[in-house]
């Protein structure tokens, strides 16, 4: 009785699903989905290789310093880095005094309270401070940016599909103009006033103007590679990988140690297991005779013996 009722319930669900399936397919064929501009013109992220890639990857300190310089000179005016503190920059190879100077000279000051009047005020940043936001709040940020909100960059390489490669592609992927084909096929996707066409951006049209436009836009200290657009984009991407995952090097080192330890432990535990089972397992094999077809065979053999006897 229980099984009969449950069977009916099952038939009910299956029936509704089959109806839904026919509706879905009929709808698909009678009314096929139109291709969208994003489907046809969106590009997958370019390939990007950084020193921090792979299980043994470690940061390239010099590159991170260059990337920080790019952030400071190009990005920081609009994009915050609110989860990173100035003191963290010591990981980039700056010493305590340099970090202090960087914090002290940072263009944006830290909001504080005037100790005597209680009014809001600002003060110079200290190493213990996190990077102050360029705007006091989202409304101010939108007001200053044509109603677009520049996202905080602390976690950006972990917060986007494609990660670092996507950021690098976006920075280098702006195109002056949409192709004639796109405009002809998808008039609605034409880049509106105040937006910029970038096929690596999921929506194709992006509010951020191209941030890195010319070779030499940032001047690197002697001994560094020439600041081409590509190099600048790569450096700032490497820096943003660090801001998103500052413990990456610790993680890779600890992971290697843990993996080696567990590998040895697995081997030793396996040998111990073999030893403990050695005597008792002598004739007990789960495979082989236990396999149903072997049992079936032995059954047949037994039956035949019975006939012969």
């Amino acid at each position: 009785m229980l099984r009969f009722i449950l069977g009916l319930v099952g038939l009910g669900f299956v029936g509704v699903l089959l109806i839904s399936f026919f509706v879905t397919t009929a709808d698909y064929f009678s009314n096929p989905p139109e291709p969208t501009a994003e489907e046809e013109f969106h590009h997958h992220a370019k390939e990007l290789h950084l020193a921090s890639d792979g299980p043994f990857g470690q940061f390239d300190e010099k590159q991170l310093q260059r990337g920080f310089q790019v952030y400071k000179e190009v990005c920081a005016a609009c994009h915050g880095l609110s989860l990173v503190a100035f003191r963290d920059l010591e990981a980039l190879g700056y010493n305590e005094a340099e970090v202090k100077a960087i914090a002290d000279q940072w263009a944006i000051q830290v909001p504080t309270t005037n100790e005597e009047t209680g009014e809001t005020a600002t003060r110079k940043a200290l190493p213990a401070d996190r990077f102050p936001s360029p705007y006091p709040n989202e409304i101010a940020a939108r007001a200053a940016n044509n109603n677009a909100f520049p996202p905080d960059l602390s976690l950006i390489t972990k917060a986007r599909h494609g990660g670092a490669a996507y950021i690098y592609s976006l920075l280098t992927g702006y195109e002056k103009q949409q192709s004639a084909e796109l405009v002809r096929k998808f008039p609605a996707a034409k880049t509106p006033q105040g937006l910029y066409y970038n096929p690596y951006f999921p929506n194709l049209n992006l509010a951020m103007p191209p941030p890195i436009t010319t070779n030499g836009q940032v001047t690197y200290a002697p001994g560094n590679p020439p600041p081409t657009v590509d190099q600048i984009a790569k450096d700032v991407t490497a820096f943003l990988v660090w801001t998103a995952e500052p413990k990456l090097e610790n993680r890779h080192r600890a992971g290697l140690a843990v993996a080696i330890f567990l590998l040895i432990a697995t081997i030793i535990a396996y040998l111990a297991y073999r030893n403990i089972w050695a005597t008792h397992k002598a004739k007990v094999r789960v495979t082989g005779p236990l396999e149903p077809q072997n049992i079936a065979k032995s059954q047949i053999a037994k039956d035949q013996e019975g006939v012969a006897g």
Partner: peptide, 27 residues
């Protein structure tokens, strides 16, 4: 000791796979 030994080595092997994910592809 039979199944503790078997669970022991197999557990270590699975923890190894777990560690590879956790430390090298955590996200």
């Amino acid at each position: 000791p039979f199944y503790t030994a078997k669970d022991g080595w197999f557990g270590a092997a699975v923890l190894l796979v777990f560690a590879l994910f956790t430390y090298f592809a955590p996200n």
